[in-house]
Nucleic acid binder design. Structure first.
Lengths: 345, 345
DNA sequence: ATGAAAGCGCTAACAC
DNA sequence: GTGTTAGCGCTTTCAT
């Protein structure tokens, strides 16, 4: 009936002349096994090529050693980098990683979470929480969740996010320094807190600093298209700002595209900046000024925090709440004299 | 001892006044259940919020309803798109998807495959087979594998790839038509068959057509950096071709970067083209001529083929071998008169 | 230090 | 149609 009639623990036990309990102890590095016995068992394990069934282990132990990463859209260049960081850290801790696309849809998230729960997932890292916060926090109540990238609204939830506010402020001040007094912001959807925080910071930088500027905001999502659309609307209305900031680099690239298309020169006519510092931002073809996040650190810390709350079943007294520093990378799109490739400010 | 003391099938059975077997039949939509009984059980299932444990099911049935997608590097923009296509199709069939980064490293692949096997994975789609072909085909011998994107060397393996040869040929002919007679190709690693096929096709298009050109080849990998390096070497040697083709779009973008950096104008001085037609190729900032693959179809077919060979344990008489058509998308990087955004040739 | 035995939650014969 | 039962492969008390 079974499909993978491989070597079972029982086979090892028989061959080594010990009980299954002893074999189990050996393969799990449990102490309380005489060295001689241990070596004999290990030899048999090697010889027979025994591999414990993760399935059976998970069933009996209640731990699958699998965690999940939820992202809105893996095709958004920011997420693959995060995914790699998370995978690396997870594998190192002996955990497998499942990546799920939520498509910013609470129902899709709910289905994923349900399936993951059925599969005995040990924990979830959600990088794109939005309308689906309840879907991930609610049902599998017991399953630990750590939010990254976007801050959740639940008061006791764990999160590790970047200092988007400081990043926005840095961009704002930088733009003023470059002599731009009207600054446009192409925002993200209102359910994404990182976008709101970026706007908040930008507003601070533009309107509260020693020099003052004016801030124009247009709604959008995280796509190139919404960057293009915003520019076209501004152009049509005859009120194109002297600088435009996208809620992320994709949007900023869309902004650049539409500007070029309408004959503007970047940055002479309009300066452009974004957030995330995706790999392509540094390309000589684009040279986009951007606020870089420490993705590796975010991923690594998230995994650590998650594994901690998995192994410690008691609800911790205080939730994990970390805000990682960001740094502004100034490139050609805001400063024509910036080094072609990479100038760190 | 157990962690998720949820509702068990036994609870449902007791509450509904039937045996666990009957409940099992109902939740699996098995026939041979009286309508009245079925409804009563369903009501209890709903009321108690019973969800079958995928773990227990997998253990006893030998099917985890999980498949894996292996890619060399999820940060390469081609793969996320493929991953989405595969995920969509898998979910629709009731399967979960695990994505693993092989880093082009056979040992990494081996570890992934081992872990997946331990977890009872039902099948594997490998999108980046290279030196790790044995690692994925060998040990879990029983686990079905379908290769996509890169063709495997094993004679009886299943694969679904694009017609890279035809794509290369199309680029070659197009470049000759645009008056370029010396064409450079920045190749991929020799273990990646898609790269070899692209070169083969390009050679055909450049040297065998009605018009003749000269082909120069430089080694590289699939990264932007190798595109840059190739250009720099050609420049240093004073033998920069009139057109350069990258083994993929990332390489082509690297080529463009280095050309710009050395003061060349694209396409007047040097025309550039690539493969994959990643999302960014169509950007007005880049406008890269590229050979597009039908990624959605590739993903969908791969999943279907995989699920077929999962459900039919008998080794099929003939392996699945499909070659999907590609199409050349001409943009500004080879044809200055091409429409800014998207011109399909 | 080691073994025996009781499950983990479910499916699949096989009986009725 | 429905119930009984024997596992799937392992971990984990509890004895010894």
């Amino acid at each position: 009936v079974s499909r993978q009639r491989g070597v079972r623990i029982e086979d090892v036990a028989r061959e080594a002349g010990v009980s299954v309990a002893t074999v189990s102890r050996v393969v799990r590095d449990h102490s309380d096994v005489r060295d001689e016995t241990r070596e004999r068992v290990q030899e048999v394990v090697r010889r027979l090529g025994y591999r414990p069934s993760a399935l059976a282990r998970a069933l009996v132990s209640g731990r699958s050693r699998m965690i999940a990463l939820l992202v809105s859209d893996i095709a958004n260049p920011f997420y693959p980098q995060l995914a790699k960081a998370v995978e690396r850290q997870a594998l190192q801790a002996g955990y497998g990683l499942v990546i799920c696309n939520t498509e910013e849809d609470a129902e899709v998230t709910r289905r994923h979470v349900e399936r993951l729960h059925d599969q005995g997932i040990d924990g979830i890292i959600h990088a794109s929480v939005g309308l689906d916060e309840q879907a991930v926090l609610g049902p599998g109540g017991a399953t630990p969740v750590v939010f990254v990238n976007r801050r959740p609204s639940a008061p006791r939830a764990n999160y590790i996010v970047s200092d988007n506010r400081a990043g926005g402020e840095a961009i704002g001040r930088h733009l003023l320094e470059m002599g731009r007094t009207t600054v446009g912001f192409v925002a993200g959807p209102s359910f994404a807190r990182n976008g709101l925080e970026r706007l908040e910071g930008l507003r601070l930088g533009v309107t509260e600093g020693p020099r003052r500027g004016e801030l124009l905001v247009k709604g959008g999502d995280f796509s190139r298209e919404s960057g293009q659309a915003a520019v076209r609307e501004w152009v049509a209305a005859g009120e194109l700002p002297a600088a435009i900031v996208g809620v992320n680099d994709s949007v900023a690239i869309g902004v650049m595209e539409a500007l070029i298309e309408t004959g503007r020169v970047i940055p002479q006519d309009v300066a452009v900046a974004g957030f995330d510092d995706i790999y392509l931002a540094s390309s000589g073809l684009i040279g986009l000024t951007s606020v870089a996040q420490d993705i590796d650190r975010m991923g690594a810390r998230a995994v650590r925090a998650l594994l901690r709350s998995i192994s410690d079943p008691t609800p911790p007294l205080r939730a994990v709440r970390e805000i990682l520093p960001t740094r502004l990378i100034v490139r050609h799109s805001t400063n024509p004299t910036a080094l072609q490739a990479d100038a760190v400010a």
